[in-house]
Protein backbone atom coordinates (compact mmCIF):
# COMPACT_ATOMS: atom_id res chain seq x y z
CA UNK A 1 0.00 0.00 0.00
CA UNK A 2 1.67 3.13 -1.18
CA UNK A 3 0.44 6.50 0.08
CA UNK A 4 1.40 9.85 -1.40
CA UNK A 5 1.55 12.68 1.17
CA UNK A 6 1.30 16.13 -0.43
CA UNK A 7 2.09 18.85 2.11
CA UNK A 8 4.12 22.00 1.58
CA UNK A 9 5.33 22.10 5.18
CA UNK A 10 8.23 19.70 4.64
CA UNK A 11 8.66 18.72 8.29
CA UNK A 12 5.01 17.91 8.67
CA UNK A 13 5.07 15.89 5.46
CA UNK A 14 7.94 13.83 6.84
CA UNK A 15 6.27 13.32 10.23
CA UNK A 16 3.09 12.12 8.56
CA UNK A 17 4.98 9.84 6.18
CA UNK A 18 6.98 8.35 9.07
CA UNK A 19 3.79 7.64 11.00
CA UNK A 20 2.23 5.96 7.96
CA UNK A 21 5.35 3.84 7.44
CA UNK A 22 5.25 2.84 11.08
CA UNK A 23 1.65 1.74 10.53
CA UNK A 24 2.72 -0.57 7.72
CA UNK A 25 2.25 1.59 4.63
CA UNK A 26 4.80 2.78 2.12
CA UNK A 27 4.79 6.57 1.87
CA UNK A 28 6.13 9.19 -0.54
CA UNK A 29 6.05 12.91 0.04
CA UNK A 30 6.04 16.01 -2.11
CA UNK A 31 5.18 19.63 -1.53
CA UNK A 32 3.71 20.89 -4.77
CA UNK A 33 0.63 20.23 -6.81
CA UNK A 34 2.68 19.80 -9.99
CA UNK A 35 4.95 17.19 -8.38
CA UNK A 36 1.93 15.36 -7.01
CA UNK A 37 0.32 15.20 -10.45
CA UNK A 38 3.57 13.92 -11.95
CA UNK A 39 4.01 11.25 -9.27
CA UNK A 40 0.42 10.10 -9.63
CA UNK A 41 1.01 9.77 -13.35
CA UNK A 42 4.22 7.79 -13.13
CA UNK A 43 3.99 5.73 -9.93
CA UNK A 44 1.48 3.24 -8.61
CA UNK A 45 -0.04 5.25 -5.77
CA UNK A 46 -2.84 3.61 -3.76
CA UNK A 47 -4.05 6.59 -1.77
CA UNK A 48 -3.55 10.33 -1.60
CA UNK A 49 -3.23 12.46 1.55
CA UNK A 50 -3.08 16.11 0.56
CA UNK A 51 -3.08 19.53 2.14
CA UNK A 52 -5.85 21.60 0.62
CA UNK A 53 -3.84 24.72 -0.19
CA UNK A 54 -0.41 24.29 -1.79
CA UNK A 55 2.00 26.97 -3.01
CA UNK A 56 1.10 26.27 -6.64
CA UNK A 57 -2.62 25.91 -6.27
CA UNK A 58 -5.70 24.34 -4.72
CA UNK A 59 -5.67 20.55 -4.48
CA UNK A 60 -9.35 20.51 -5.43
CA UNK A 61 -8.34 21.04 -9.06
CA UNK A 62 -6.22 17.92 -8.96
CA UNK A 63 -8.97 15.98 -7.19
CA UNK A 64 -11.60 16.94 -9.76
CA UNK A 65 -9.24 16.12 -12.58
CA UNK A 66 -8.45 12.67 -11.14
CA UNK A 67 -12.14 11.93 -10.66
CA UNK A 68 -12.83 13.21 -14.15
CA UNK A 69 -10.34 10.71 -15.48
CA UNK A 70 -12.18 7.98 -13.63
CA UNK A 71 -9.44 7.36 -11.05
CA UNK A 72 -10.94 6.22 -7.79
CA UNK A 73 -7.97 6.07 -5.46
CA UNK A 74 -8.94 7.13 -1.90
CA UNK A 75 -8.26 10.81 -1.21
CA UNK A 76 -7.99 12.35 2.25
CA UNK A 77 -7.80 16.14 2.39
CA UNK A 78 -6.05 18.03 5.18
CA UNK A 79 -7.25 21.55 5.73
CA UNK A 80 -6.67 24.45 8.06
CA UNK A 81 -10.06 25.82 7.11
CA UNK A 82 -13.00 24.34 8.89
CA UNK A 83 -16.04 26.04 7.47
CA UNK A 84 -18.83 23.85 6.17
CA UNK A 85 -18.49 25.44 2.72
CA UNK A 86 -14.87 24.33 2.54
CA UNK A 87 -15.72 20.82 3.63
CA UNK A 88 -18.62 20.49 1.24
CA UNK A 89 -16.48 21.82 -1.59
CA UNK A 90 -13.79 19.23 -0.82
CA UNK A 91 -16.21 16.34 -0.70
CA UNK A 92 -18.02 17.48 -3.81
CA UNK A 93 -14.83 17.66 -5.79
CA UNK A 94 -14.49 13.96 -5.01
CA UNK A 95 -12.40 13.69 -1.85
CA UNK A 96 -13.38 10.79 0.41
CA UNK A 97 -12.65 12.35 3.78
CA UNK A 98 -11.15 15.44 5.33
CA UNK A 99 -9.25 16.24 8.50
CA UNK A 100 -9.09 19.71 10.01
CA UNK A 101 -5.70 20.85 11.28
CA UNK A 102 -4.49 20.51 13.92
CA UNK A 103 -5.25 16.78 14.11
CA UNK A 104 -3.59 13.98 16.05
CA UNK A 105 -1.40 11.78 13.87
CA UNK A 106 -2.99 8.51 15.06
CA UNK A 107 -6.29 9.95 13.85
CA UNK A 108 -4.81 10.44 10.39
CA UNK A 109 -3.49 6.88 10.34
CA UNK A 110 -6.88 5.53 11.41
CA UNK A 111 -8.64 7.50 8.67
CA UNK A 112 -6.20 6.34 6.01
CA UNK A 113 -6.70 2.75 7.14
CA UNK A 114 -10.45 3.12 6.96
CA UNK A 115 -10.17 4.59 3.45
CA UNK A 116 -7.93 1.96 1.92
CA UNK A 117 -10.21 -0.75 3.25
CA UNK A 118 -13.10 0.38 1.13
CA UNK A 119 -14.88 -2.45 -0.61
CA UNK A 120 -12.86 -3.77 -3.50
CA UNK A 121 -9.51 -2.87 -2.07
CA UNK A 122 -7.41 -5.81 -1.01
CA UNK A 123 -5.71 -4.81 2.17
CA UNK A 124 -5.43 -7.91 4.28
CA UNK A 125 -4.05 -6.93 7.60
CA UNK A 126 -4.59 -7.39 11.27
CA UNK A 127 -5.91 -4.62 13.50
CA UNK A 128 -5.43 -4.71 17.25
CA UNK A 129 -7.43 -3.00 19.97
CA UNK A 130 -5.72 -3.75 23.28
CA UNK A 131 -5.22 -7.50 23.31
CA UNK A 132 -7.97 -8.11 20.76
CA UNK A 133 -6.76 -8.77 17.24
CA UNK A 134 -8.93 -8.89 14.15
CA UNK A 135 -7.65 -10.44 10.94
CA UNK A 136 -9.62 -8.99 8.03
CA UNK A 137 -8.20 -11.39 5.46
CA UNK A 138 -9.10 -14.50 7.47
CA UNK A 139 -12.12 -12.81 9.10
CA UNK A 140 -11.10 -14.13 12.48
CA UNK A 141 -10.74 -12.58 15.92
CA UNK A 142 -8.36 -13.53 18.70
CA UNK A 143 -7.76 -12.37 22.25
CA UNK A 144 -4.15 -12.55 23.47
CA UNK A 145 -3.30 -14.96 20.61
CA UNK A 146 -6.13 -17.35 21.54
CA UNK A 147 -8.72 -17.59 18.77
CA UNK A 148 -12.14 -16.24 19.69
CA UNK A 149 -14.92 -18.27 18.16
CA UNK A 150 -17.87 -16.10 17.19
CA UNK A 151 -21.19 -16.79 15.49
CA UNK A 152 -21.47 -15.32 12.01
CA UNK A 153 -23.49 -12.19 12.84
CA UNK A 154 -21.47 -11.34 15.93
CA UNK A 155 -18.29 -11.66 13.90
CA UNK A 156 -19.71 -9.26 11.34
CA UNK A 157 -20.68 -6.80 14.08
CA UNK A 158 -17.21 -6.99 15.59
CA UNK A 159 -15.64 -6.51 12.17
CA UNK A 160 -17.59 -3.28 11.68
CA UNK A 161 -16.65 -2.03 15.13
CA UNK A 162 -12.95 -2.73 14.50
CA UNK A 163 -13.18 -1.15 11.05
CA UNK A 164 -14.58 2.04 12.56
CA UNK A 165 -11.22 2.52 14.28
CA UNK A 166 -12.51 3.85 17.60
CA UNK A 167 -15.40 5.79 16.14
CA UNK A 168 -19.08 5.38 16.85
CA UNK A 169 -20.99 3.03 14.56
CA UNK A 170 -24.72 3.62 14.40
CA UNK A 171 -27.22 0.83 14.80
CA UNK A 172 -28.57 1.56 11.32
CA UNK A 173 -25.12 1.17 9.84
CA UNK A 174 -24.60 -2.15 11.64
CA UNK A 175 -27.94 -3.43 10.38
CA UNK A 176 -27.03 -2.40 6.83
CA UNK A 177 -23.58 -3.99 6.95
CA UNK A 178 -24.45 -7.12 8.88
CA UNK A 179 -27.80 -7.98 7.36
CA UNK A 180 -27.60 -6.31 3.98
CA UNK A 181 -31.09 -6.32 2.54
CA UNK A 182 -32.53 -8.76 5.10
CA UNK A 183 -34.79 -7.25 7.71
CA UNK A 184 -33.57 -8.34 11.16
CA UNK A 185 -35.67 -8.37 14.32
CA UNK A 186 -35.88 -4.95 15.90
CA UNK A 187 -33.59 -5.79 18.82
CA UNK A 188 -31.19 -8.04 16.90
CA UNK A 189 -28.23 -5.66 17.09
CA UNK A 190 -28.50 -4.90 20.83
CA UNK A 191 -28.70 -8.65 21.45
CA UNK A 192 -25.58 -9.30 19.36
CA UNK A 193 -23.75 -6.50 21.17
CA UNK A 194 -24.81 -7.94 24.52
CA UNK A 195 -23.47 -11.40 23.66
CA UNK A 196 -20.35 -10.04 22.05
CA UNK A 197 -19.57 -7.95 25.11
CA UNK A 198 -19.88 -11.03 27.32
CA UNK A 199 -17.70 -13.16 25.06
CA UNK A 200 -15.02 -10.48 24.93
CA UNK A 201 -15.15 -10.14 28.71
CA UNK A 202 -15.00 -13.91 29.30
CA UNK A 203 -12.00 -14.21 26.98
CA UNK A 204 -10.21 -11.54 29.01
CA UNK A 205 -10.21 -8.94 26.27
CA UNK A 206 -9.25 -5.38 27.18
CA UNK A 207 -11.32 -4.11 24.27
CA UNK A 208 -14.77 -3.07 25.43
CA UNK A 209 -17.90 -2.19 23.51
CA UNK A 210 -19.43 1.06 24.73
CA UNK A 211 -23.08 1.75 24.12
CA UNK A 212 -24.16 5.33 23.50
CA UNK A 213 -27.91 5.38 23.68
CA UNK A 214 -29.40 7.03 20.63
CA UNK A 215 -26.00 7.27 18.92
CA UNK A 216 -24.48 3.83 18.48
CA UNK A 217 -21.64 1.61 19.63
CA UNK A 218 -17.91 2.09 19.91
CA UNK A 219 -15.06 -0.34 20.52
CA UNK A 220 -12.26 1.02 22.70
CA UNK A 221 -9.34 -0.31 24.68
CA UNK A 222 -10.11 -0.17 28.40
CA UNK A 223 -6.44 -0.02 29.40
CA UNK A 224 -5.44 2.86 27.18
CA UNK A 225 -8.10 5.53 27.37
CA UNK A 226 -8.61 7.06 23.93
Amino acid sequence: MRILVVEDEARLARLLADALVKAGFAADTCGRLGDAAALLGSEAIDALVADRILPDGDVLHLVSRLRGEGQDLPILLLTARDSVEDRVAGLEAGADDYLVKPFAVPELVARVRALVRRPGSVFGRVDTIGNLAFDFAARAASVGNRPLALPRHELAVLEQLVLAGGRVVTKEMLIAKVYGLDEPESNAIPVHIHHLRHRLGDAGSTAHIHTFRGLGYMLADQEKRP
Partner: peptide
Protein backbone atom coordinates in the same frame (compact mmCIF):
# COMPACT_ATOMS: atom_id res chain seq x y z
CA UNK B 1 0.24 23.77 16.16
CA UNK B 2 -0.08 20.90 13.74
CA UNK B 3 3.71 20.64 13.51
CA UNK B 4 4.05 20.70 17.28
CA UNK B 5 1.39 18.07 17.82
CA UNK B 6 2.67 15.79 15.04
CA UNK B 7 6.21 16.14 16.40
CA UNK B 8 5.06 15.13 19.87
CA UNK B 9 3.04 12.24 18.49
CA UNK B 10 6.21 10.94 16.83
Amino acid sequence: LQLLSAGLDA
